[in-house]
Each structure stands twice: as structure tokens, then as C-alpha cells.
């Protein structure tokens, strides 16, 4: 079995990659012109944050911290459906 200290050696490298991606995605969300581009960037941002939350739970070795992962992953689909429904209703009016 691989010891836990070996994981602690490589975990900062992995988490820093996802943190840099989170910052650049946030800049894209904050500077986007239209609603469609913003929601598309939020999709990628939330998927990135799901992976980051699993890595944080692995850092603390706690199973209770995994409780927010599955609702957050399904919220992406809910946001897409709600925004698309809003846009189509606005066109048909």
C-alpha cells in the first residue's frame, strides 16, 4: 500500500493546476458579453470545482465532505435547462 505521505507530496501540484484553471475561468465569466457565453463558461467552472472539492476531501481524509459533490454536478444540467427555457420563451413572445 502506498502511504498517505506520498499523496501529500503530489497533491499541491495537482490542486494548483485546478486553482489556476479556476481563476482564468472566473475572469472569462466576469468579462463575457452575452448570457450564452457566460453560462457556457460557468459549466466548465463548476465541473472544475467538483474535481477540486474531491481533492480537498481527499486532503482532509473525511467522507462527510463529499456530500456536496453530486448536487453540484447535477446543478450544471439544471442551470442549462432553465436558461435555455427562459431564452426560448422570450423568443416566442
Amino acid at each position: 500500500m502506498v502511504s498517505y505521505e506520498t499523496l501529500l507530496g503530489v497533491l499541491p501540484v495537482l490542486m494548483s493546476l485546478f486553482t489556476i484553471a479556476m481563476i482564468i475561468y472566473s475572469i472569462r465569466v466576469f468579462t463575457s458579453k452575452t448570457l450564452g457565453s457566460m453560462v457556457l463558461a460557468i459549466d466548465a467552472l463548476v465541473v472544475d470545482l467538483v474535481v477540486l472539492m474531491v481533492l480537498v476531501a481527499l486532503y482532509y481524509k473525511s467522507a462527510f465532505l463529499l456530500i456536496g459533490v453530486i448536487p453540484l454536478a447535477s446543478w450544471v444540467f439544471l442551470l442549462d435547462v432553465v436558461v435555455a427555457r427562459y431564452l426560448e420563451k422570450r423568443w416566442s413572445k
Binding site: 463548476v46 470545482l49 472539492m53 456536496g68 453540484l72 436558461v83
Partner: peptide, 11 residues
């Protein structure tokens, strides 16, 4: 939608 992003970071 931006208010939703704020809640994501709080999570």
C-alpha cells in the same frame, strides 16, 4: 446567474 456563481465559491 452571477449570484449563482457567488454561491458556488461560497460552497
Amino acid at each position: 446567474v452571477l449570484a449563482g456563481v457567488e454561491s458556488v465559491f461560497y460552497a
